[in-house]
């Protein structure tokens, strides 16, 4: 479980996050949604430690992550897997080298064990046999899947996903969502997903936080979101005519 308490983040005079409180539950897909510029990615970066919050604390299973120094954070970071918006695969490495990179640094596994682990992860994301390809030889959807394979190579306890569906066709986007959902269920990870894709929200949103202008405006599940009377959330979720029509049928 991850808890964020009263997170404030400012960049100079720009107040990006204003006192966010939230709990992200284990074994669930926790979605952070909101329009562009609402502070979703900044909140995610504060949670994983890429940004230091101006005020407030982040707790990983009751351990205060914000107050830790680099060395103290390493044991928690070894339990974190993250899929970046643009996958962030290491260009100079093959798919297999990308996946075994954290294993090389933090485990004493033999070469055969690491290869087996890479093959297991690739099988998990339906990319069997792509071990020797370089990121430049992969499509956008394949890069995302390799990113997921790398994220799960250390069997993480916490999985963070930034805009998993951006730049993907609807069919591939649904496959990625299903994959994240399966991993969350199978590995019982605390999964935090930043998205503004409504298919993801309705499909895998076990627990949703809606941010607006850096503040938390709403919290609930994908079943509750369709019946909310929160005006800002409604204008975000049901912005398209298709979603408006779908709501009327609900």
């Amino acid at each position: 479980m991850i808890e964020v308490k009263d997170i404030v983040k400012t960049f100079g005079d720009n107040h990006v996050l204003s006192g966010i409180n939230a709990t992200f539950k284990a074994g669930k897909n926790n979605l952070i949604i909101g329009s562009s510029g609402s502070g979703k990615t900044t909140l995610l970066k504060c949670i994983v430690g890429l940004h230091d919050p101006t005020k407030g604390d982040v707790f990983y299973d009751a351990e205060n992550f914000t107050n830790m120094n680099f060395e103290e954070r390493v044991p928690i970071r070894k339990q974190i897997g993250m899929l970046f918006q643009n996958s962030a695969l290491f260009d100079s490495m093959t798919v297999e080298q990308n996946i075994i990179f954290p294993l090389n640094l933090f485990t004493n596994m033999s070469a055969a064990e690491k290869r087996d682990r890479a093959n297991f992860c690739l099988e998990r994301v339906n990319l069997v046999g792509k071990n020797s390809l370089y990121p430049s030889e992969l499509s956008g959807g394949m890069k995302k899947r390799v990113g997921i394979a790398r994220a799960i190579s250390m069997q993480p306890k916490y999985l963070f996903v930034d805009e998993p569906n951006s730049g993907l066709d609807p069919k591939t986007a649904i496959l990625i969502d299903e994959l994240i959902n399966e991993i969350t269920e199978d590995f019982k990870t605390t999964t935090v997903i930043v998205t503004h894709d409504m298919n993801s929200v309705m499909g895998i949103g076990d627990h949703i936080i809606f941010l607006h202008n850096g503040e938390k405006w709403w919290e609930g599940t994908n079943h509750e979101i369709a019946h909310t009377d929160n005006a800002e959330l409604n204008s975000f979720v049901f912005a398209s005519p298709f979603m408006k029509a779908a709501r009327e049928k609900l």
């Binding site: 390493v74 970071r77 070894k78 643009n86 962030a88 290491f90 260009d91 933090f106 250390m154």
Partner: peptide, 18 residues
């Protein structure tokens, strides 16, 4: 610089790599 702007350095830091 390319690793920085493509978030590869962020990926290293998330993994706990210096």
């Amino acid at each position: 610089g390319t690793m920085r702007v493509t978030e590869q350095i962020d990926a290293l830091e998330i993994m706990g790599v210096n």
